[in-house]
Amino acid sequence: MLTITNLHASAGSKEILKGISLTVKAGEVHAIMGPNGSGKSTLAQVIAGHPGYDVTSGSIEYEGQDLLELDAEERAQQGVFLAFQYPVEIPGVTNAYFLRAAYNEIRKAHGEEEADPIEFLDIMEEKLKLVEMDASMMQRSVNAGFSGGEKKRNEILQMAVLAPKLAVLDETDSGLDIDALRIVAEGVNKLKRPTNATIVVTHYQRLLNYIIPDHVHVLAGGKIVKSGGKELAHELEAKGYDWLLEPAGV
């Protein structure tokens, strides 16, 4: 589904990603862990198509096409979804309106009919249940005044509605209480299909108790310094990152 090869990316003159290679197959869950500032969010944003980062070399292939050729909105329309580490507020635009606009853009891109507000209400209702979110949240402005946890849950609601093929969750677990963590994780699990894949960026092993990863990667200094199975996460929890950094020259 996704093949990243020797990816280098920078912001301005600062190189942040320094040669990342990663292959994600349909049906898989990959976890990316690593110290603060190691480039996890940058990788997520580059996959989603943030214009603030320049890919200086390397490639990203997604579903047989060159992902870097596509604008961010085209990537989204083709099933790439990023749950933001810091979801953005859009005052004055209701959550319901925003989500329907997004949903319809994706349908249009697939040559499908747009959903009218009534139809969309049904779709939303079902998904709200999935993430145990109150319907009243839909009438509030997108993320404006949402608590940290509400914002994260709202990202998962969007993911549930937009049904992406490749979801990248950037620290969706940070700031969630125990119950919310379980709800979000269950949501992710329920949306899991053999045809889609998920990349979860996290600092905490505990999320991986709920969302069982097939692969765990450690990102440090803009490189993947170690990859392994789910047991790697436990090892990191116990030992921290230092033992990996030095041998990797970070």
Binding site: P51, A72, A76, Q77, V88, A101, A102, E105
Partner: peptide
Amino acid sequence: QIFYCKARGLNAEHAISLIVAG
């Protein structure tokens, strides 16, 4: 804000008109 909208499938013009309408 624009990138957030784009990451949800809205193009730049749509994003701006939405943000401004809000």
